[in-house]
Amino acid sequence: MTLLLTLDDGSVQRALTDAVELAREAAVAEAGAEQVGAHEGVYREDAVSATHLFEAAVPGYRGWCWSVTVAAAGPELPVTVSEVVLTPGREALVAPKWVPWERRVRPGDLGVGDIFPTEDDDPRLVPAYLQSDDPAVEEVALEAGLGRVHVLSRYGRQEAATRWRGGEFGPRSDMARSAPESCGTCGFYLSLAGSMRAAFGVCGNEISPADGRVVNVEYGCGAHSEIHVETTSSVPVAELVYDDSQLDMEPVREPADS
């Protein structure tokens, strides 16, 4: 890798560009002569500083460079070393971008005893504000889902609906495409309540691969309640044909006249 960037003209910039040996000495002092390779280029940081790059001969750091930043406060002042660091080059193997743990968790990762708290501003949830001192009102509110601290927001319901429809138990799955009928006409289909009722329910057929799962109304499988299969003999029965060439023939004797 070679980085050759033109620096602005001027005595300070020329001094910074020419400070290759000063930068090398700093890198050697930091890492040792055996780990500092060829000079690979220099680039400007600002008006009074520049960074020299040296190949890093460090085991396990192929493609990395020693970056030595040098600076000069003015034309008549000496060039000094600001810092020496090991930095990745264009072909260096580096760790992937860090992602917070709460965004790394995926469906199926949560195990027994694991805790995964929701964020305070989770857009999928909204507060349930209804509170009353009337037990009858509280009973109705609890049944409708309003007695909880949070309920699904419109965004949360749409997100869930999109995920369920495009999942394993949606209308585009292989099972649904080969099914003779859809869940919406099946006796084992248990509709959800609320706004999800029109499109989703739960399968109650233990034979079905979707038993106990949320299924789309257009999903289907071979265990539909209204499927009837005609029971006929597995051996085709054709019209009986007699081959008289294989029969023994005897003439019929006429009875004697008495």
Score class of each variant (00 low, 15 high):
residue 126 V to C: 11
residue 126 V to A: 10
residue 126 V to L: 15
residue 127 P to H: 09
residue 127 P to N: 01
residue 127 P to V: 10
residue 128 A to D: 04
residue 128 A to C: 15
residue 128 A to M: 14
residue 129 Y to S: 13
residue 129 Y to I: 12
residue 129 Y to F: 15
residue 129 Y to G: 11
residue 130 L to G: 05
residue 130 L to K: 11
residue 130 L to P: 03
residue 130 L to D: 07
residue 130 L to T: 08
residue 130 L to V: 13
residue 131 Q to A: 15
residue 132 S to F: 08
residue 132 S to Y: 14
residue 132 S to W: 13
residue 133 D to H: 14
residue 133 D to A: 15
residue 134 D to N: 14
residue 134 D to P: 00
residue 135 P to Q: 10
residue 135 P to L: 07
residue 135 P to W: 12
residue 137 V to S: 12
residue 137 V to N: 10
residue 138 E to G: 09
residue 138 E to A: 13
residue 139 E to G: 10
residue 139 E to K: 03
residue 139 E to M: 13
residue 139 E to D: 15
residue 139 E to H: 14
residue 139 E to T: 13
residue 140 V to I: 15
residue 141 A to L: 11
residue 141 A to S: 03
residue 141 A to Y: 12
residue 141 A to K: 03
residue 142 L to S: 02
residue 142 L to I: 02
residue 142 L to A: 03
residue 143 E to V: 01
residue 144 A to C: 06
residue 144 A to F: 06
residue 144 A to I: 01
residue 145 G to R: 00
residue 145 G to C: 05
residue 145 G to S: 11
residue 145 G to W: 06
residue 146 L to V: 01
residue 146 L to T: 00
residue 146 L to A: 02
residue 146 L to I: 02
residue 146 L to C: 07
residue 147 G to Y: 10
residue 147 G to P: 09
residue 147 G to S: 05
residue 147 G to K: 03
residue 148 R to M: 10
residue 148 R to N: 10
residue 148 R to H: 13
residue 148 R to K: 05
residue 149 V to E: 15
residue 149 V to K: 14
residue 149 V to W: 05
residue 150 H to V: 04
residue 150 H to T: 04
residue 151 V to G: 11
residue 151 V to A: 12
residue 151 V to Q: 15
residue 152 L to Y: 08
residue 153 S to P: 02
residue 153 S to D: 09
residue 154 R to N: 04
residue 154 R to K: 05
residue 155 Y to G: 00
residue 155 Y to N: 00
residue 156 G to Y: 08
residue 156 G to M: 08
residue 156 G to R: 04
residue 156 G to I: 01
residue 157 R to G: 01
residue 157 R to W: 11
residue 157 R to F: 06
residue 157 R to H: 11
residue 157 R to C: 02
residue 158 Q to P: 00
residue 158 Q to C: 00
residue 158 Q to A: 10
residue 159 E to C: 00
residue 159 E to K: 06
residue 159 E to S: 01
residue 159 E to V: 02
residue 159 E to P: 00
residue 159 E to W: 14
residue 159 E to T: 05
residue 160 A to D: 04
residue 160 A to E: 00
residue 160 A to I: 06
residue 161 A to K: 00
residue 161 A to P: 02
residue 162 T to H: 07
residue 163 R to I: 10
residue 163 R to W: 12
residue 163 R to E: 14
residue 164 W to T: 00
residue 165 R to N: 09
residue 165 R to C: 02
residue 166 G to C: 12
residue 168 E to F: 11
residue 168 E to L: 14
residue 168 E to N: 00
residue 168 E to M: 11
residue 169 F to I: 02
residue 169 F to H: 14
residue 169 F to A: 04
residue 170 G to A: 05
residue 170 G to E: 03
residue 170 G to I: 02
residue 170 G to K: 01
residue 170 G to M: 05
residue 170 G to H: 08
residue 170 G to Q: 10
residue 171 P to Q: 07
residue 171 P to Y: 10
residue 171 P to D: 06
residue 172 R to H: 08
residue 172 R to Y: 11
residue 172 R to E: 09
residue 173 S to D: 06
residue 173 S to W: 09
residue 173 S to M: 07
